[in-house]
């Protein structure tokens, strides 16, 4: 899907929970998280965390220049603490 969008002229970024699969399908830009299925945005109700992850992912649209880049999130499931001031522009 992501590849088709990019082919049709839309810049895309995808979250991924499966690095091996992403390496095979080769989407243009990927933000990979070692989080459980169904939790690409993190924990339910944790809006700071969710916002951070979306910001990180969208920032790849501005920073990635090599097609097929997979950036791994530094966050640890249920260990990393997120606050409203925690976000930065980079991943």
């Amino acid at each position: 899907m992501q590849r088709e969008l990019e082919r049709q002229g839309l810049a895309t970024v995808g979250l991924s929970l499966l690095r091996k699969l992403t390496e095979r399908v080769k989407p243009p830009r990927t933000y990979y998280l070692r989080y459980p299925f169904g939790h690409a945005l993190g924990e339910a109700g944790n809006r700071d965390q969710q916002r951070q992850i979306v910001r990180d992912a969208l920032s790849l649209l501005e920073t990635v220049t090599v097609p097929g880049t997979i950036v791994e999130s530094p966050y640890r499931w249920r260990r990393t603490r997120f606050g409203p001031e925690a976000f930065s522009s980079g991943a």
Binding site: M1, Q2, L5, Q8, G9, L10, A11, T12, V13, G14, L15, S16, L17, L18, P27, A40, L41, V54, A57, L58, L61
Partner: peptide
């Protein structure tokens, strides 16, 4: 494209 998106976020 009909929605006139410039960029797309994909969530698994």
């Amino acid at each position: 494209r009909k929605q006139q998106a410039d960029v797309v976020l994909l969530v698994p």
